[in-house]
Nucleic acid binder design. Structure first.
Lengths: 288, 288
DNA sequence: TTGATTTTTGAAAATCATTTTCAAAATTAG
DNA sequence: CTAATTTTGAAAATGATTTTCAAAAATCAA
């Protein structure tokens, strides 16, 4: 993703002054090149056409057309906020739901803090036990997260009941990582539990959709999702997907960095095989 | 999404014979136009350049370049199967996870059966009660689905315990819709429960990732997700997102077609407001 | 600093892609 | 079957892109 723009950034230092003008423009407003002819684009950048062609070649494209096509492919405009109406067929709705998800993931990718993410992954990797908290809409996310970690043999537990959350948090130690999932970042019970866990010395991580929400005060690392749901779609449909993408990221990181992850996964798969129909066991080792 | 190609399909009948040649080519292999000059494209389609320009205008573009840019934006190539390695930073992994999700959603959108989806939405809309079944990896999805429906005031219940599933299914009636979620489509307990529910006369829906899996034999409607996870990523990371997209589609459809959905949602929001921190209640009515 | 060398740059020319024109071919209507 | 209309592509015209080349700028050596 973003191959052309990434290449431009990667080779930025080897560019000449005029070429940097072009690079700056493209990195800032990649989409603006799309409707322009080379002549117009040259004028906008304040360089000659020849320089643009040389620039395109340097970045690895055949010419102006090719770089434009590449940028068009990377910076496809996903229709934003196309509201779902009663006239839409279920299939139409599916398309719009997907568009919302694309939108949300792209924005989350742009805004997520790389260092917080890294901090978080490493804390989990080193933790003795992991507590995942979520209520209501976020409860399934908490379950999903801990389920994945459990499959890797980690001591991960979901708590989706505010009493249990309080109890679990009260017994957290310095070796505990607590992951609090809250779309609004303001669920009282989650905040209380996170606070209690911090008192016990735990490392606390929050996954939330709102900047400067109360949960940040009790979090050692904050992972922000971004989504702009409108109207009745207040349920955080697409922000929830972004939360899952974060969970998957952590899971994948763990798989890559845990010793013997392959064997552990195989073990999990093996015990689950007996839960499936006989004729399918052979066909696939995939589960549930 | 897919605006250009959609417009082509919509106006197909008003196209001339030569123009249809172009339309056919584009609908079949939209991406193939990208590296071609109008001359080459004309040859590939077996028409003259003039016809192509006329075609572009007819569809609503200024010319060949513009239609090409539009198609490039729609048919962006998301990198497929870029494997995650130990060298990737968590941020890199996030990008790859997102790519997998894009891929999976696009493929699911292409392959999902519109009629099954519609059948399914309408059955749920008319149901007296809805039972959602999932185990392991699919349990959180089942919880999420029933949670959403519950917020709309529907009698929806998740069962993620094989005994409870059996009991719930045994009491299903003609007015019951049972939604079985299984990545492999082969979970024994889910199959048993679906079968029992069918005997009771229930309408059964399955959400699964595999074609021709056993669950289809006990399903009145089958909704297929598509994903190609590789290596250790066998856990159905991205197929699960596609499952959620289906859930969101059903939810959105229900919101649009249920009487008084707005009021019902408001009621749900109202009761949840007290679960949040005081200072946030004003800022946002969003929850959890 | 100065002059020599190399690199960078844009104006203009050359090339090539796109668009327009127009007459022939095909289709449709009468 | 003929006339009117539509569709089509070859060729011309246009104009976008690329190349060339000499001037300008930057770098280097003394």
């Amino acid at each position: 993703m973003e191959k052309a723009i990434l290449t431009i950034k990667a080779n930025y230092d080897s560019l000449t002054k005029s070429e940097k003008k072009i690079a700056d423009f493209l990195v800032e407003n990649p989409r603006d090149i799309l409707p322009l002819y080379i002549t117009e684009f040259a004028e906008v950048c304040g360089v000659s056409e020849a320089t643009i062609v040389r620039f395109a070649r340097k970045i690895g494209f055949d010419g102006y057309q090719q770089i434009k096509i590449a940028i068009a492919q990377e910076h496809h405009a996903h229709p934003v906020n196309e509201n779902i109406t009663a006239d839409d067929s279920p299939y139409d709705i599916f398309g719009k739901v997907c568009d919302d998800i694309y939108c949300s993931l792209e924005k989350t990718q742009k805004s997520i803090d790389k260092d917080e993410l890294t901090k978080c992954c490493n804390a989990i990797l080193k933790a003795d036990d992991i507590i995942v908290l979520g209520l209501g809409n976020s409860a399934p996310i908490a379950n999903d997260a801990s389920h994945k970690m459990l499959r890797l043999g980690l001591r991960a537990h979901p708590y989706t009941d505010n009493h249990m959350q309080a109890i679990a948090a009260a017994h957290a130690t310095e070796k505990t990582v607590v992951i609090g999932i809250s779309h609004s970042g303001a669920s009282k019970d989650i905040l209380d539990a996170m606070h209690a866990a911090k008192l016990g010395g735990a490392f606390t991580v929050s996954i939330t959709n709102f900047q400067k929400s109360p949960i940040e005060n009790v979090s050692d690392a904050v992972l922000h999702t971004v989504s702009d749901e409108t109207n009745y779609r207040i349920l955080g449909l697409s922000s929830r997907i972004a939360q899952l993408a974060i969970i998957d990221t952590i899971y994948s990181y763990l798989v890559c960095h845990m010793e013997g992850a392959g064997d552990i996964i195989a073990k999990t798969e093996a015990v689950l095989a007996s839960k499936k129909c006989a004729d399918v066991k052979k066909r696939t080792k995939r589960n549930t």
